[in-house]
Design a protein around this nucleic acid. Structure first.
Lengths: 362, 362
DNA sequence: CTGAAAGCGCTTACAG
DNA sequence: CTGAAAGCGCTTACAG
């Protein structure tokens, strides 16, 4: 058992409150230097560490932030959380996490748990554009910040990427390469990121006077499977697109896989642009052209805003839109002249799982 | 402010202890059904939620687990954490996280923070084979479990992949394909995963009677850069390997990138096998042949062992070695007949970053 | 069947 | 300059 304040004060032969004042460096403390030094030495010798649970009960401050994240095994959210944790730790705050898998029921459970644990504030990466749970939260005392996704209309307590500008840059990039038949693999309209990226796609096409073919706007989801299925549908069109802008990198990877399974590849047959740069990695091949989101910085900014509310009672006046960057890598290039349907240029690859004992190859 | 037990008891017109007994479903409670129902209704109406900080102070149980992770932005650890969080939440435990970046100083800070917060147990994914901090921990009362990495000798409170068997499977796979000059990009010997994978590599070569060329054993690190540099060194050899087994997937990706920059590719020029299957993804190309580690399950098993210690005083008798699986995908194949040095078959690719406003392509 | 009281380990306003 | 006391919101052994 670690030593308590009371035990330490007995060792020092003074009252607990005196020890407390010394250890807290209370500015108004008027403790003799001699006593002070003796107490500090004792505390160090016995490795005294204040019990933060007791402190929290007394001060009604837990120094813990709660965060709701769709799925921490998604590397994008891993980076966001890393940014949060660094910023929090720098100010002696800790973070408790709950995964929601984007399920409202898990969201409600997570919120309830975080409240019970008396977190000082909330970082929510799970917002829907229409989110009753968050509206309820806004009516209460609990400070919170929305990260990555926001409600509609956008509120000041929000830190998000500039999704709209990113989508415009992505589509502008493809138009600049000479593409005209550009498809979009969209996500759910209920999520601000998907909504704004779709808007950026549509508006950019229109402002360039490029044709908007409704058949080229397909809804997938934020994951590989959705991107895969959406790409299959696009390939089945009579006149497939020459380029695709996907709502995020996972959808783009799924789409690339669908291409590959159809014996096609990027950028030779179809150009592909993602969103997030979730792997940060030029090392993953094909190196994906994508819109880079400052994921860590986003997490850090969110924590700083939240701590400003909690500690300094500074409430943000407007949302923070973080600038994003087009990173042109290998999956985008000029369209090849072609007429009619795409033709596979090689056979589809497969994958085989084998047990560690009896290793089959392929 | 949420309602307290005391306030609730006043509303019910009974003593707080009575309310407490009802809400805890105390088996020995002998409260009249009528009163019981009335209290439950009131609690629901006012959404009473016990303050877990107060409860913790009283019971000396926080229902929080602490975890030390090298870097949560690494997707492998993201999956492990996800497994931990799921298993913990199922038993009403929460998790507080600290990142260490494998720096002993951050490790010590993280441990101190987690103690102050009165966590009930620790999940450590940061162990070194020789780890004084962990030895000290073992002398104390705090329950803890080592995850993914273990100390030497291995201790019962450990949940790790079967690194040795995985390495044997990886090298056996390459030998089975016909390779004889097989290199290993190793990690630091101070970490059990790297140590055992290197041992597995050496032992498998020897047991097959294959030559062990010291020049083919190079030390990188667990990240892309280390793999990249190690691969460069291997390519500079007079007689480069025909296959490479990398200590983990990131090192393998770095190595693939070095290949690509040298105008070579896997598996045509050199076969590549990684470890972890950290992306779970067949969607990332080239689909990496790798050793699949049950990352989520590993996190979940670790939590279950830890909770068995904390709640049931059940201490493990032996470490848990989780079986791993060879997944043969696209980066490994038979060696091509070749004489002497490798020759580039195409030009190296580059990547260009451009701002969202003025998008350059390449 | 229910009440009264103590106490977890701190912090802090009040005395002196 | 230091002490004494109250109290944060619970749980639980003890009474009756």
């Amino acid at each position: 058992m670690p030593i308590t304040l009371k035990e330490l004060s007995q060792l020092a032969g003074v009252h607990p409150s005196t020890v407390a004042r010394v250890l807290q460096n209370d500015p108004r403390q008027r403790v003799s230097e001699e006593l002070r030094a003796r107490i500090m030495t004792l505390a160090r010798e016995h490795q005294y560490r204040p019990n933060s649970v007791a402190r929290s009960l007394r001060t009604k401050r837990s120094a813990v932030l709660g965060t709701l994240i769709p799925d921490i095994s998604n590397p994008f959210f891993g980076s966001v959380l890393r940014g949060m944790e660094d910023a929090a730790a720098a100010r002696d705050y800790s973070i408790i996490l709950a995964n929601t898998d984007d399920l409202p029921a898990r969201e409600a459970n997570g919120l309830a748990m975080l409240r019970e644990r008396q977190v000082d504030g909330l970082l929510l990466a799970t917002a829907r554009r229409n989110d009753p749970a968050i509206e309820r939260l806004a009516a209460e005392r609990m400070p919170f910040v929305l990260v990555n996704r926001h409600t509609s209309p956008i509120t000041p307590n929000t830190v998000v990427p500039d999704d709209y500008a990113g989508a415009c840059a992505a589509v502008g990039h493809l138009l600049g390469l000479g593409h005209r038949r550009i498809a979009h693999i969209a996500g759910s309209d209920e999520i601000s990121t998907a909504y704004l990226r779709r808007q950026g796609y549509l508006d950019t096409l229109q402002s360039y006077g490029a044709p908007v073919d409704p058949a080229l706007l397909v809804t997938g989801d934020f994951r590989e499977q959705g991107g895969y299925d959406a790409m299959r549908a696009l390939l089945d069109l009579n006149d497939p697109p020459t380029a695709v802008f996907a709502v995020n990198d996972l959808a783009a990877l799924g789409a690339l896989h669908a291409l590959s399974d159809a014996g096609l590849r990027a950028p030779d047959d179809i150009s592909m642009v993602g969103f997030n740069d979730m792997f940060h990695a030029t090392y993953i091949t094909p190196r994906l052209t994508t819109i880079q989101v400052p994921d860590r910085a986003m997490g850090a900014h969110a924590v700083e805003r939240l701590l400003a509310m909690i500690l300094d009672d500074v409430w943000p006046e407007s949302p923070l839109l973080l600038p994003v960057t087009l990173v042109a890598r290998e999956t985008s290039g000029p369209p090849l002249a072609r007429r009619g349907a795409l033709r596979p240029r090689r056979h589809a690859g497969g994958s085989v799982a084998a047990s560690a004992s009896g290793g089959k190859t392929r």
